[in-house]
């Protein structure tokens, strides 16, 4: 065993990279669920974002345009979910699962000609002054722009939900759609916008995997990240800063267990491999034991103005 071979600076830097996709997807899903909609199609939207981001990134040579296209494509895909659940009142759980399957199939189809190709990836931006701080500088302030963006986004969502009037209305829609409707708020329109925001965030998360974290396109490459994002929303009790905590915890344990294995730590590998999931489950149990975790009261319920 040689723990000294694990470099904590690199470890923390890679855990931030590893956590960014699930954090982006989870923060989007938080807004969706805060509006009272349960969209289980995160995985499908992520993989769609991954393929569209990669294709656009390759064809334009600009990863930034790739991210933009990924956000737009996944938002468009999420509109289909919104249309089915909000206008045709289909079951949200079933429709969300369907969305995942559609996304996986569609992405495989789009991505076929792009297998094995390489895209330009995002270069890290070293934030002036801050990145010169010894140790902490390299750890926290020498990442690619999407890592910073994801953290800023978490802060923005938090401020939006807590301080803005629109955030209050969104939460009202999610807590009691009938009351919100009676007050004259457009429940369906607000939910549709929330769903599109969630789609765009999932798309960014997926594109981060195909453009930065891996970076290449392979079919099925999100490999369940969308489901982890859904778990993290519950884990975080629908609170934005806890999303950041949850995503970094999950990403951290994932990266740490690989590093511990490489360093030859004498813990059986099986325990290391299951640890990210195990820790997520344990924390979920603790949170549930605390009682009301702030799940939006109308979560998963269909709304129609006649009822």
């Amino acid at each position: 065993m040689d723990l000294s071979s694990i470099n904590p600076v690199l470890l923390i830097a890679s855990l931030m990279v590893s956590a960014t996709p699930i954090m982006l997807a989870a923060i989007g899903e938080t807004i969706v669920e805060k509006a009272g909609v349960l969209n289980l199609g995160v995985e499908g939207m992520m993989i769609t974002g991954a393929v569209v981001g990669f294709v656009v990134g390759i064809n334009t040579g600009s990863p930034m345009l790739g991210f933009l296209a990924a956000a737009v494509a996944s938002a468009i895909l999420s509109i289909s979910f919104g249309f089915l659940t909000l206008y045709l009142l289909s079951n949200q759980v079933a429709t969300g699962l369907g969305l995942t399957l559609v996304g996986l199939g569609l992405s495989a189809l789009i991505g076929k000609p792009y297998e094995g190709m390489k895209s330009t990836t995002l270069d890290p931006i070293e934030i002036p002054i801050l990145s010169d701080i010894p140790i902490v500088g390299k750890m926290l302030f020498a990442h690619d722009p999407m890592v910073y963006f994801s953290i800023i986004l978490v802060g923005a969502v938090w401020a939006f939900l807590k301080y803005s009037r629109a955030g209050l209305v969104l939460r009202a829609v999610g807590e009691n759609h009938n009351a919100a409707h009676a007050l004259g708020y457009k429940v369906v329109r607000i939910r549709m916008l929330a769903i599109m925001f969630g789609g765009a965030c999932s798309g960014l998360g997926g594109a981060y995997i195909s453009l930065v974290r891996v970076p290449q396109w392979t079919e099925g490459m999100t490999a369940g990240a969308g489901w982890i994002a859904l778990a993290i929303v519950v884990f975080a009790s629908w609170k934005p800063w806890r999303i950041l905590l949850g995503a970094y915890l999950f990403g951290g344990v994932t990266v740490l267990q690989l590093n511990l294995q490489a360093a030859g730590v004498a813990i059986p590998v099986e325990y290391l491999s299951m640890s990210p999931y195990l820790i997520t489950i344990i924390v979920l149990v603790f949170i549930s034991a605390l009682g009301n975790q702030g799940a939006p009261a109308s979560l998963g319920r269909s709304f129609h103005a006649s009822t």
Binding site: S5, I6, N7, L10, L11, S14, S18, P21, I209, R213, V214, Q216, T218, G220, M221, T222, A223, A225, T254, V255, L258, N259, Q261, A262, A263, G264, V269, S273
Partner: peptide, 26 residues
């Protein structure tokens, strides 16, 4: 240095495993 990924196919995890090995000097 050997890492068991417990998967045949998971690009993100394989990339992370490779990074962990590289960061430790492989």
């Amino acid at each position: 240095s050997i890492i068991w990924a417990y998967t045949w196919f998971d690009p993100a995890k394989e990339a992370d495993a490779a990074k962990a090995l590289i960061e430790q000097g492989a």
